[in-house]
Design a protein around this nucleic acid. Structure first.
Lengths: 289, 289
DNA sequence: CTGCCGATGAAACATCTGTTGCGAAAACTG
DNA sequence: CAGTTTTCGCAACAGATGTTTCATCGGCAG
């Protein structure tokens, strides 16, 4: 009984010619504005389509649904997991063990994608650009993503500092934070004490706080000017860091793109420098460029 | 009057602390499941959140909205523009949409998924289980994922060591590697010299090598017994770590699953210990379990 | 303890929901 | 053309919706 959106569309398309004029009107409208179906009531939908409310009930019936709600369901399901298209594709993968986790990673990414909009990313980038200095923090499980973010950011910006708390020196590191700086904290539940310490210190000093968290209600996000939210959900025992990494990378990309040629130049020279220092080893894959 | 979704989230976040317990519950739920707000009725929303229907009206009022509908609007607007299904989204977003990068992350994940099969993961898990000691390494951009992997693994296995090269002491750390041990290295192009150093040393000592690399031909994977491959491709300037994280997490999940109750027990006690040490700060989201 | 005040829950409210029944109109059939 | 069938619109229905009202609870100051 539970139809998918695309199969419903097919059904409409194939039986369209047999429909009565009014039902055609309704069906055509439904295809043109699928979001409306999920969101508004049948009556307003009818008003927008220039059709009587009953017509939608009749349309649903002629297509084999017992009630309008059954007809409506696929439209809702399509919206719930935002870009339904990719979800549908993922469901078609074989149901072996690794595929399941893989699928869940995709779902997590999609959930994360739905939680943030472009303007939040650009606001974060703007704040970082106008910062005197940038501090990055993440503790315990989140140290990894924080390090990755700071490492790449350092490639095209000089004054990026990773707050590590190495050797218990977190407080000493924090003394460098001042007004005009931006502090960027990554964390998720359970929230480590250090992240709150950093956040509070940053707020006290008047620095701008950017939080990358699993919830806008994360304790260290309380005083944040900008919050980027990610999901850690999944069938795994452990919370997933995949989405946090995705967000960090997206932010980096935004920063590099906005930085323009200057950022690119610095990036290149940084890489050349590393190369010259003999940090890297040549790959021996002949298909390389 | 017309609020955007992110500004609404900010409003909730900033005023969350002043809310009454019940309203917090409602607010937290709304943040955790934003799609629901757009789709279901207030009454069922209340049922799912474990709150009275009135509470949502009250919440909307406290946040400055005259009616529930005004509060609900941003949630609907957010969904309306979300689905990348028909042509209607092209006109809305600027060229550098977050959806594009999001899409590429999914593609990368799918590519990675295709590169490894379940048996490779179980082989890796098997090797790790029968190891005397486990060493984890990753340098430069890959230090993050390596740290994340080691951190979680340490939660249910005692003898996991992260090779950090801190203070230039990499060689000293390597002296601990011996026959019967497993060394797990994460890395991608350009390959850092340290990763090769570690790999060669491990091979010389007779330790088993597991490589997590962007190519089976990675220099540090030459002597590896098992290679897990991931993709770093994407439209971004920077290679993506998302898939590397996904692989690491999948491996951890496999390990925990195979470890059975014993692993679970250790995991629990590790978490309890951390809790007792006051490492974490309580979350103030009442909808948590 | 009393009196107060905000927070909370239960029930009643008007309104809007999807759906039905029925009559008028239109379209087809012989 | 009449007779039949289908389509359509209107008004009414039961149930669900968001909201209001009011009684109760629980903490706290005097």
């Amino acid at each position: 009984m539970a139809d998918t959106f695309s199969s419903l569309v097919d059904k409409i398309r194939s039986r369209y010619v047999d429909l009565s004029p009014q039902q055609r009107r309704a069906a055509a409208f439904v295809l043109k504005r699928p979001e409306e179906v999920a969101i508004v009531s049948m009556r307003t939908l009818a008003a927008n389509a220039g059709v009587q409310p009953v017509t939608f009930v009749r349309l649903a019936r002629t297509l084999g649904y017992t009630a309008w709600e059954d007809f409506k369901e696929p439209f809702i399901e399509r919206m719930r997991s935002a870009p339904a298209f990719y979800s549908d594709r993922a469901k078609k993968l074989p149901a072996t063990a690794p595929a399941e986790l893989h699928l869940s990673h995709i779902k997590t990414l999609e959930a994360t994608q739905a939680l943030n909009d472009a303007s939040t990313f650009s606001a974060a980038a703007e704040a970082l650009e106008s910062a005197q200095n940038v501090f990055v923090a993440g503790f315990r499980a989140c140290f990894g993503p924080a390090h990755a973010f700071a490492y790449v950011y350092q490639l095209f910006r000089r004054d990026v500092v990773l707050l590590s708390g190495l050797g218990g020196g977190l407080e000493a590191e924090l003394r460098a934070v001042d007004e005009g700086d931006v502090v960027c904290i990554i964390g998720f539940r359970p929230y480590s004490r250090e992240s709150v310490t950093v956040a509070e210190h940053a707020a006290r000093r008047g620095a701008t706080l950017i939080a990358i968290a699993d919830s806008p209600l994360a304790p260290f996000a309380r005083e944040a000017k900008i919050v980027l939210t990610f999901s850690t959900e999944g069938p795994s025992l452990f919370p997933s860091l995949v989405s946090a990494s995705a967000i960090a990378e997206h932010l980096l990309d935004t920063l590099a793109a906005r930085g323009g040629d200057a950022a690119l130049e610095r990036l290149k020279s940084a890489e050349a420098q590393l190369q010259a220092l003999g940090v890297f080893v040549p790959a021996y894959d002949p298909t390389d460029d």
